[in-house]
Design a protein around this nucleic acid. Structure first.
Length: 491
RNA sequence: GGGCCGUUAGCUCAGUUGGCAGAGCACCUGACUUUUAAUCAGGGUGUCACAGGUUCGAGACCUGUACGGCCUACCA
């Protein structure tokens, strides 16, 4: 039994053979167009206004529709810029083009030259004088009207998604503009873009399970980075006062609508600044990007409208938790007493969690889902933040903030701890707490060595770019903003 | 890792109480010299995700597997 797919494919192979038999290369090396479809339409508009004269135009693109009317044919071609209708008349084509026309299918890439005109219904159209096949398509495209709906195919064969679904294409255009806007913002402020190792002898700067790989020549295991932090701080020590890196980070954790194993982070570090300076900068950067991309500060996200117009509310973490669940963590100085209090609220509490993780659970359960409008939570308990500097007036807290919007954490920042002795103490404490569960737990001695040479007071931040793009494209799943999200291998 | 749901033609989807496998698009043949989701006439190309089971009879019911979606867990 042959399937429809086999049949369609066989028909197209037969067409390919006939084309080759006529001495035509169905996959020529190059073709130089004079205009994109968008430029051609603009030119026609100028011609209509008398601003420019008739001229030959050469365009190229993928055939998305064929409408034949006796001796006339209308083809819609799409290129990266847009689409254009082609008009062909059998009697106006040479013999070779007449034969080629019969072998064309939706999906083929073609080039065409001729003059532009408006049809009587006002459609900008190229009257084709010469037609060239640029690539024969051997498989049928998804249906034109409903597009491609199957998310499995949309992610695995993203090119089909991009061909069929204009809104998918737009999502990734926005993503590119967001990243360009971030670079522009930071470059203008004198930040230096740098690249630091993804392969690291120990994965530090956060606490997450790393991916492990092996270098054969060195005969040594390496870890894919889980954060950018520790290398960027080395550069602050080195005297680059303002650095940032936009790059892929890898965490060997669960996959969800808000987590992909590899995701894009921005981290920036600024010498002679503290977390208040960073907070102001982040607020300006994100609100500026929102306005640049969408034209205004208000955007739609799911059922909500989020207003990024600064200033954003700044709420002490302690007060936020009191507000949303009534627990004042200052009254519970150890894990046991806090856990007991949390159990009164009917939360299932993991007995192995330390105080920092319990507070984190309070944030994610009670606070985070309520932070739809952009909000800064400030001043975190020291147990949760081994790389942040303590507040001068409260030993229990560090100068740290997290920014939230749409019920998601989008940034994490602090006044960086630059006391090498204190930093070593914090690492050791972390190690004692987690040595049983964590797969990799070694103190990054090279980083401590760098701190011992002296790092200026520094403010740093990390921003989850994928989540920021989710907000700006109104997508509820991180897979919609990552071109090739992680999926299980088939078979 | 756990729970619930899904998988039918290349694509988008129907498929009733267990009784011949369906539609639209696409594709093939024909008509049509400005159509545009072109229209009109004709054609039907399928391992109903996979493997078992129940049954006279399974796309449908049962079990398992694969993949996906949502929730949940993990992720300072």
């Amino acid at each position: 039994m042959t399937s429809r797919l086999d049949r369609i494919t066989q028909q197209r192979w037969a067409k390919l053979d006939r084309i080759r038999a006529r001495g035509i290369n169905p996959y020529p090396n190059s073709y130089h167009r004079s205009h994109t479809t968008q430029q051609a339409i603009a030119l026609l508009e100028e011609q209509k206004k008398g601003l420019s004269g008739k001229q030959e135009v050469i365009v190229a693109g993928r055939i998305r529709a064929i409408r034949s009317m006796g001796k006339s044919f209308f083809l819609d071609i799409h290129d990266g810029a847009g689409k254009l209708q082609l008009y062909l008349h059998r009697d106006h084509l040479n013999e070779a083009n007449r034969k080629l026309l019969k072998e064309l299918d939706i999906g083929d890439i073609i080039g065409a030259s001729g003059e532009l005109f408006y049809t009587k219904s006002g459609e900008p159209t190229l009257e084709v004088a010469e037609l060239t096949l640029l690539a024969k398509s051997l498989r049928p495209l998804p249906e034109k009207w409903h597009g491609l709906q199957d998310v499995d195919i949309r992610y695995r064969q993203r090119y089909l998604d991009l061909i069929s679904n204009p809104e998918a294409k737009e999502t990734f255009r926005v993503r590119s503009r967001v990243i360009a806007a971030i670079r522009d913002f930071l470059n203008r402020r004198g930040f230096l873009e740098v690249e630091t190792p993804m392969l690291q002898p120990s994965a530090g700067g956060a606490l997450a399970r790393p991916f492990i790989t092996h270098h054969h020549t060195l005969d040594h295991d390496f870890y894919l980075r889980i954060a950018l932090e520790l290398h960027l701080k080395r550069l602050i020590v080195g005297g680059f006062d303002r650095v940032y890196e936009l790059g892929r980070t890898f965490r060997n954790e669960g996959i969800s609508t808000k987590h992909n194993p590899e995701f894009t982070m921005l981290e920036s570090y600024q010498a002679y600044a503290d977390y208040n300076d960073v907070m102001n900068m982040l607020e300006e950067m994100v609100s500026g990007i929102v306005r640049k991309i969408s034209g205004k500060y208000k955007i739609k996200f799911g059922d909500d409208t989020i207003n990024f117009k600064p200033p954003w509310p700044r709420l002490e973490l302690r007060q936020a938790i009191i507000k949303y669940c009534g627990i004042d963590f200052n009254k519970f100085p150890d894990a046991d007493s806090l856990r007991a209090e949390m159990q009164k609220l009917d939360i299932e509490v993991d007995p192995t969690k330390d105080r920092g993780r319990l507070i984190d659970e309070l944030i994610s359960t009670f606070v985070e889902p309520n932070l739809i409008q952009p909000t800064f939570l400030v001043d975190y308990p020291v147990e949760m933040s081994p790389l942040a500097k303590k507040k001068p007036d409260d030993e229990r807290l560090v100068e740290r903030f997290e920014a939230f919007a749409g019920g998601m954490e989008i940034a994490n920042a602090f006044t960086e701890l630059n006391d090498p002795i204190e930093q070593r103490r914090r690492f050791k404490r972390q190690l004692e707490k987690h040595h049983q569960e964590a797969e990799v737990e070694t103190i990054d001695e090279d980083f401590l060595l760098a701190l011992e040479y002296g790092m200026p007071p520094t403010g740093g931040m990390g921003v989850g770019i994928d989540r920021l793009v989710m907000l700006l494209t109104n997508q509820q799943s991180i897979r919609e903003v990552i071109l090739f999200p992680q999926l299980r291998e088939k078979e």
